[in-house]
Structure formats: structure tokens, C-alpha cells
Design a protein around this nucleic acid. Sequence first.
DNA 1: TGACATTATGACTGGGTGGTCATATAATAT
DNA 2: ATATTATATGACCACCCAGTCATAATGTCA
Lengths: 209, 209
Amino acid sequence: MPKKTFYNLSEEKRNIIIETAIDEFASDSFKNASISKIAERAGIAKGSLYQYFIDKKDLYKHIIEISGNKKLEYLTDCIARIEGLKLFELIRELYKQGILFTIENPKLASITNNFLKETDTRFKEEILGTNMEKSNQFFEMLIEKSKQKGEVKNEIDTKVGAYIITHLNTAIVDQVLNHMEFSEILLNQEELLDKVDKMLFILESGFNS
Amino acid sequence: MPKKTFYNLSEEKRNIIIETAIDEFASDSFKNASISKIAERAGIAKGSLYQYFIDKKDLYKHIIEISGNKKLEYLTDCIARIEGLKLFELIRELYKQGILFTIENPKLASITNNFLKETDTRFKEEILGTNMEKSNQFFEMLIEKSKQKGEVKNEIDTKVGAYIITHLNTAIVDQVLNHMEFSEILLNQEELLDKVDKMLFILESGFNS
DNA sequence: TGACATTATGACTGGGTGGTCATATAATAT
DNA sequence: ATATTATATGACCACCCAGTCATAATGTCA
């Protein structure tokens, strides 16, 4: 968390710093992102950054938190509709909102994605606190409910099912990001949703004929 | 590719260098791996390394090539049996061999996995040459064949199907690696295969009841 | 033994990094 | 206007890096 001095800054200055940090962390991993560059590009002295944040990790934590909150904004609507939707209707909505978030906030999406790819588990825990594995547990809960409703096969292993759904979600976000980097074209959202539907169709009914 | 001087070295010395490089690239990304450390740990002068390899990328290329070849050894057997097996029997074998490779060669697996996570597409192309996307195309071909045999639903999108199978494969390898890092216990191979079976069951028959 | 080619070496260059700290500036309070 | 507190600064520290190159050591052939 930032020091008090950071919140004494004008909102404008705070925004510049945050935006610059987002830029930097979006284009490099935590390790390779540069505090020096952030300071330079934000037009402040490096020493000042250390007046606002304890250290690099502290700034990173704050940016990760911002990312998470922003993404939550995209998901809360459909999470609110949990009760009314069938499992795969809900998953479709979640995937869709994930894609939307990625398209509208590519830098934030890239940051959270880079973070997920981080291998150092201790580091991850340190940054996320207790919030880890939340996504997996959420899907596990959904699957259990759907089993009880008779929507989903009982023979299915809940944990493995949640694992599949989580991983394909991040895989999709990853692909969106890479395409956006490569061809600068804002890729067709409908085409993407079509892919998602094809994917969910496979998950729902299986490969076998 | 290494310079001629590298191949003039004794096999022993060559092996030490390769092993040390594998260690280094396994524990850090290309960017963060250190030539200086490799030289120091291999007990040779840094300048010598540059007598054997053009630059860092050249050494990395060679290590990636070694990894790829070693993994191919694990897969050729079951690839040879393509004709006799059903789609998911084959996929099971491929996943299984992938896990086996990862357990028996965790460093090499970690290197290839880190490489796959690399975001810079140009860099990837430069390292791999034309070999990119091979895995995806392979699965696409398999799915097409299985459709013709009537094993697999025709309504399924081949590309999306291959995408799912490829991504879940790398996700599994990833999990194996992380577990190995964390608990130093050689994790139960049967337990893993059980998870794979549960995963394939879902893919074969779908979530819906 | 001497002449030549090959290989080994590590100090060095120019660049980067996170983080510190004495000092300068600005703001506030008296 | 003075004293006190809060913020801004950038030179500086210790460290790391990839890659170079003149020199030294070693090997090879005559």
C-alpha cells in the first residue's frame, strides 16, 4: 500500500504516476520492469517515487490491486445473476466479460496475465495475500451446484472440471492479448465470441459422437 | 548453432557447459538468465563461452533444440502407433509421455515451458524457425481423421478442439513443474494419470448430463 | 627445436538496475 | 517574518549484465 504522502498528491499527479506504472508493468514482468523508467517517464525524480511507495514491490502490489478491482467491475454484473443462469450460460458470460475487459483494458489485462504466469509461488502469495485460488474455488462451487440441479454429470470430477474452465479462460485472454499486440487491428469481437461458443459447445457435449 | 570450436572440445567439457546452461535457463527466462553465471559455474572464462557460441541467443537456441529433441524421444513411440489408436487413446498416451518427460527431465521441461510463455512472437520465431504451431496442426490433423472415422462429432470446430487439447497439455505440464518445485516429493505418477483420465473423460463426453 | 595456429582468459566498456540520502525547495503554522 | 514540518531531487552506491579484445597459454606440425 502506498504511503500517506502519495495520497497528499493532487489527483492529476497521482494518475500520471499510476498510468506510467501501468504502462511499464504491462510491457515487462515484475523483475524486468524499471522503477527508473517509470520515474523518468512520469516526469518525477526517482527519489520521489520512494517517497510515495516503500519499494518496487509495493508499487506493483498497488497496480495489481487496481487491475483486480477493475476486472471485478466487469464481472460483478453477471456474478449477480448466478442464480438465474445455467452453468454454461454463466461461464459464457464470464468469458465474454473477460474478453471485453481485455479489449478495453489491454494493459491491465496484460499485467494480471503476466502476474499469473509468474512462477515464484511465494512471490505470488506475498502480492495476493489470501486471495489466491479464488477463481478455481468459485468454479468448483458452481459445478457442485449444477450437479445438484442435475445439469451436469455426477461422474465428473469437480476440481478437474474447474481446472479446465479456469485454464481455458486464461488461455483465451492470452490469445486476445497476443493478437492485439501483433496485428494492431482491433480484432473482431464477434469472431472471438464465436470461438468461445465453439469451445463451450465442446465442453458441454464432448468430442465423442 | 555452436561454432566449430565448441565441437573441438572434449565431450566432458561440452557436457559440463551444456548442463550448466540448462540449469541456468531452467531457473530463469532468456532475458534474466546470465551468461556470466553460466561461465562461472561451468568453471570457464566468460570469453571462452563466446568462443563456442556467437552470443546468448545462440546458446539458448542450442539448448532449446536439445530440449525439443529429448522430448521427441518420449513421443515418437506413441506417434508411431497413431493408426492403431483412437483419438483419446492417443491423446492419453501423449499427455502421459509429456508428464513422464517432465518428471524425468524437469529442467528441460521447465526451459521449454518458459519458452512457450515468452510473449515476444518475433523472438519465438527466431528461435524456432519454421517449427512453430506444429503441435496445434498435429492435433488438427488427428481430429479431422477422427471425424472421418465417425469417432468425433462433426459439429466440432477442429481448430478450437486442437486449441483446447494443446492448452490443457501445457497446463498439465505446468502443474507438474510447480508441484515439483514446491514439495520436493516426487509426486505420485498414478495420481497424476488419474487426473489426466478425469480430464479426458470430461473432454470426451462433456459436462452436460 | 622453432614456427604457426588454435584456444583460454579476465579486465574492461558501456549500459542497466533498486534503493539511499544529504540537500534544496515549498508549504504551513506561529 | 520566522520557525517548523513536509516534499522534491538527483548524484551516488553497490551491484549486475552482454559482449569485446589484447594477451597469454596451449597444441600442432616440420
